[in-house]
Amino acid sequence: MLKKWCSLSFLLCWQVYAAQEPIEAVPLYTQAELIELIKKNQHLQRVKSDECQLVQDIEARAETMALPSYQFLYGDMLAYAVCVDRDVELGLYYMRSAAEQGLASALEQLGRYYDVGQLVQADKAMAITYLREAAAQGNLKAQLRLVGLFNQGHGSPRDYEDAYRWLFHSAVADKAQHKKIERALSQLAQKMPQSVVRRARLPM
């Protein structure tokens, strides 16, 4: 009956449906919530699952308020065409803006991009610059990739001690990840004097 009546009066039908199923506004993410989503690499999926309702708010917080977590989110949205038209150059601009403000996830991602040549030209020296900053903040992905680059012969031996120290003192519950760290550290230790390795193992 409702369907038949709807065909007679679209406007009244829409008002009835609106009254029956009120649209709930999606709350904007807090800084802490967004950073956790970024750490778990769930930030883009969250924007999609929220049906792209927050695009204007995200853009405003990235552009006007210059919040690093929102700059990172908006940069990724632009780079991968999530709820917005794709603009890799602008996306990288916002990622770099977030990195310049010290957001570890942005530093790690840019370091990874420069390492593998994703969205940018591969540049191991630039990768190490970004990864070192992220690793110093305790970002495990950055620490592992940084040690990996050193083990491949990139970078300066002067940075080995810090890289070893950060990764050695990282807390990892996953056994497979723990074994991966052990192998990386063992390989890096072969490039270092034993006295430096012992010093890097001292409590931080």
Rank of each mutant, 00 (worst) to 15 (best):
E21P: 09
Y70H: 15
K40Q: 14
Q31T: 13
H43M: 14
V47C: 09
R61N: 11
Y70N: 11
A79F: 12
V26S: 03
Y80N: 06
A66M: 12
Q45N: 13
F72C: 05
D50Q: 14
L44I: 11
L90P: 00
A99M: 09
Y29G: 01
G91T: 12
I38W: 00
G75C: 11
V55I: 07
A62V: 02
A66L: 06
I58C: 01
L37I: 05
R46T: 01
E51W: 06
E63C: 13
S97A: 14
E33G: 00
L78M: 14
M77K: 03
L73R: 02
Y29R: 09
R96A: 13
E59Y: 15
A25L: 09
A66W: 02
A32H: 13
D87R: 00
V26H: 04
L92R: 11
E51D: 15
E51A: 08
C52W: 05
R86S: 15
V26E: 04
S49P: 01
V26Q: 04
V47S: 03
S49T: 08
D85N: 10
L78G: 09
Y80R: 06
A62S: 04
M95A: 09
D87F: 02
A25E: 15
E59T: 08
A98M: 03
V55G: 01
I23H: 09
Y94K: 06
I23R: 07
V82T: 12
P27K: 08
L37F: 05
L67I: 15
E59V: 10
Q31A: 07
E100N: 11
R61P: 06
E36N: 10
R61C: 10
P27I: 06
L78W: 06
L54E: 04
A81R: 10
V82C: 11
K39G: 05
D87T: 10
D57N: 14
I38V: 13
L28T: 04
C83L: 05
G75M: 09
L73E: 02
R96N: 15
Y29M: 14
V55E: 06
E24R: 07
P22A: 10
G91A: 12
A62C: 11
Y94P: 07
K48D: 05
N41Y: 12
E21Y: 12
D87C: 12
T64I: 12
M95G: 07
L90W: 04
Q56D: 15
C52E: 07
T64K: 11
